[in-house]
Amino acid sequence: MSPELLVALVIGAGLFGTGVYGALSQTNLVMIMMGIELILAAALVNLVAFWRYLHPDVAAGQMFVLIVMTVMAVEMAVGFGVAIARFRSRGSVEMEEARELKG
């Protein structure tokens, strides 16, 4: 258990905790997406730490990081698409009003 791996994982855990707190505590769709971005960033840190300190010769680790980055970009694109549509119809993207999202 090399110290750098430990430091990297602790930082990843910290980011994960902040992301979860953020995603659950905010009332606005865009801020929740920022919480999710932080969670995905924590996953990125862990992935690179595992690649670097455990299997540096396997390129699949880096491939996985590219895929998680794609997920981040795609999630933002679709999230903002939904945000625009919702703002156009309801006038606000606050999660409180989302309860009436009927039909």
Binding site: L66, M69, T70, A73, V74, M76, A77, F80, G81, I84
Partner: peptide, 17 residues
């Protein structure tokens, strides 16, 4: 530029690959 921005967010990833 909302339309462009959405397409750019997804299209930007192509560069990484």
């Amino acid at each position: 530029f909302g339309g462009y921005a959405l397409l750019f967010l997804a299209f930007d990833m192509e560069m990484a690959f």
